[in-house]
Nucleic acid binder design. Structure first.
Lengths: 149, 149
DNA sequence: CAGTATCCGAGAGGATACTG
DNA sequence: CAGTATCCTCTCGGATACTG
């Protein structure tokens, strides 16, 4: 369970096999999962995976449409801390900073990228489902929705 | 791009191939992506996928540790609206309601489940990366972190 | 059992301005 | 260019209480 309290080995033993469980509220993996699936993290790592090579700050901002400087900086810091991206600074003027995926970052990014592909291709079905659902909203209270007994 | 404004076919044509792009702020797929990767949706559909069969309200609440009645109800409603789960009511006393994945829901759940598996198995590495990162915080301002010029 | 209604606080996140 | 700092808003989501 990898409890945050009665912790059997969170302290520096990365080789050990944990029985991590994101479904448990107090497992550390839950927090990591929340971050990864956060508003911006997923899009950023997916953008990096899709690009293949490292990207510069401004390039990521351009690709991840709608993100603010503040959130980009903050989110990059977070996923860097979690070992998913590496930050490389070239001390030139003007500064040149690149962000690239680590091996861990790639592993994480792959299912996210797959998810994005599925959502994009299934979007019409989702929109249609929403339309049907909302339409049925008006049709309420007239004996429906029951499973056959 | 599937703009929400100059919309070329969001109105009831699920067969048509869209050029949906989740990286575009105004593409409808962005919203769907945000919902799917929301705080609870991913855990719920993953729980349903893992279980195989439909689950009852209380069973999901038990599995998705920490979720409140309110958020479970709200999130189920949302993903039902998006066509990922089906709600089946058996009009008995006490009421018996089951939630099961649709085909679409399964497609979505699969990469999420894969992501969960990766995070759980890589958790030790993430924790170690965090430790190293935080440790380096103190080691600042002494000429480091530069890429070789 | 399976929800809905209401209230409320914390924090995610946007806008703007400033810096190395 | 690549950020940080400050402020402020607004949504998410928890607690609690009630219903069919």
């Amino acid at each position: 369970m990898t409890d945050l309290d009665s912790d059997p080995g969170l302290d520096g033993n990365p080789g050990r096999a944990f029985d991590a469980d994101v479904f448990s509220r107090r497992c550390a993996s839950r927090g990591v999962f929340q971050h990864v699936t956060g508003r911006w993290s997923a899009l950023i790592v997916a953008a990096l995976l899709e690009n293949g090579d490292p990207l510069r700050f401004a390039a990521i901002r351009r690709r991840v449409d709608g993100i603010s400087d503040r959130m980009l900086s903050q989110t990059l810091g977070q996923i860097e801390r979690e070992g998913m991206v590496v930050r490389t600074v070239h001390s030139t003027i003007p500064p040149h900073v690149e962000y690239g995926l680590t091996a861990l970052g790639q592993k994480i990014a792959e299912p996210l990228s797959a998810l994005i592909g599925i959502i994009e291709s299934e979007l019409p079905h989702v929109l249609e489902a929403q339309r049907l659902f909302d339409e049925a909203e008006g049709t309420r209270a007239r004996g429906l929705h029951d499973a056959p007994s």
